[in-house]
Design a protein around this nucleic acid. Sequence first.
DNA 1: GGATGTGAAGTCGTTCACAGCT
DNA 2: AGCTGTGAACGACTTCACATCC
Lengths: 215, 215
Amino acid sequence: MKFSKVPEATIRRLSTYAHHLEVLEENGEVVVSSANLAQACGVNAAQVRKDLAYFGEFGIRGVGYYIKDLADNIKTILGLNREWRVAIIGIGNLGASLLLYKEFFKNNYKIVAAFDINPAEVAGRVSERTGKPVEILNPDQLKEVAKDRRIDIAMITTPASEAQKVADLIAQTTIRGVLNFTPAQIQMPKGFEVKNYFFTAVLDTVAYLLKWKRR
Amino acid sequence: MKFSKVPEATIRRLSTYAHHLEVLEENGEVVVSSANLAQACGVNAAQVRKDLAYFGEFGIRGVGYYIKDLADNIKTILGLNREWRVAIIGIGNLGASLLLYKEFFKNNYKIVAAFDINPAEVAGRVSERTGKPVEILNPDQLKEVAKDRRIDIAMITTPASEAQKVADLIAQTTIRGVLNFTPAQIQMPKGFEVKNYFFTAVLDTVAYLLKWKRR
DNA sequence: GGATGTGAAGTCGTTCACAGCT
DNA sequence: AGCTGTGAACGACTTCACATCC
């Protein structure tokens, strides 16, 4: 399997393909063409084929792709055939909703720890909603807990003003992946995979496009 | 002001610059160079200058950019100098947390309606958390409410399986912008600005990068 | 002197178009 | 005949490098 120079956009699209293949599978479909899949995912057919070509030959000429087969292959490529252990840091509105987000498990992401500066209060508030006791840890325990529970990825859902402090804590642990939900830009040493994911940036894009559309 | 061929990536970065300029302003800074701003936002200095150049000349050679001035200009470009009226459709975990998200108001986005297929039950659940009564409407009222309340943008936070139905409803209204938080790809007629924003796509990217990194 | 603004060069990603299998 | 896989053409975005102006 190759791993040369794959555009990151390709990876994001693979994730989309995987989701759509699941839908097709549920509908009892067996084979899909690149043209089909492309249309459903809103991209060009050649794009689909090229994206897949980075990783091998998964189709049959004159036929298309076996859905189950392709889905499995994509999941292997993305690393979704293994469990990823995730921590959430900052249990406000957003953090709590991620914590309660059920479908997580489907995708081999498992939330193994939740942190907040106010563990007791937050635990009370969250367990009120679930009816079950919930464990919330203090961020100063991050280092040990990350090691013990083998955390792979941290999601930062604190207020923006705290994001860098959290990033500094993460830098001292065995965690290597970070999803930053705050609008703050965080600085981390080399070797960490950091993705920003702040939704008002996208909302701003929509606003901009609406503003300038019919010029 | 131009509006020619601006890369969408530029718009997303402008949003980041705007946020960082606010932080600088709060710190009492007055002037910033493209090199400074670039570093803080994790991009190249020439990139910052080029992004701004699409819209005009905002800096002073040999000096830099006046922070307040530049921030105002970017907000005007993005359309953040006016109010954008937003609806949330689907009040589950995520929808509810967006509904309760306070900082929205800072950015001139105003949530003016919330919809769910189960208005009574959901309203009860949400108001339990806030302590205040909350209005949740039935999606079949979308058309009239969109007109009455002049909704600009809809955020879809339903389960994926319902996303297309919601999209079809939106297509019949005066709403023109859509932020789709579900993994489903939605089909809408021309003239709508649709952005997908599903976080496991980004999480998958992080997982992929971690998987292939040190090999 | 120093930082911006910008053509030109370079890099990266997408689409085309067709050869190659089944 | 039909659809994949892929080199080559194209287009878009980023970075360089320097002229320009404060």
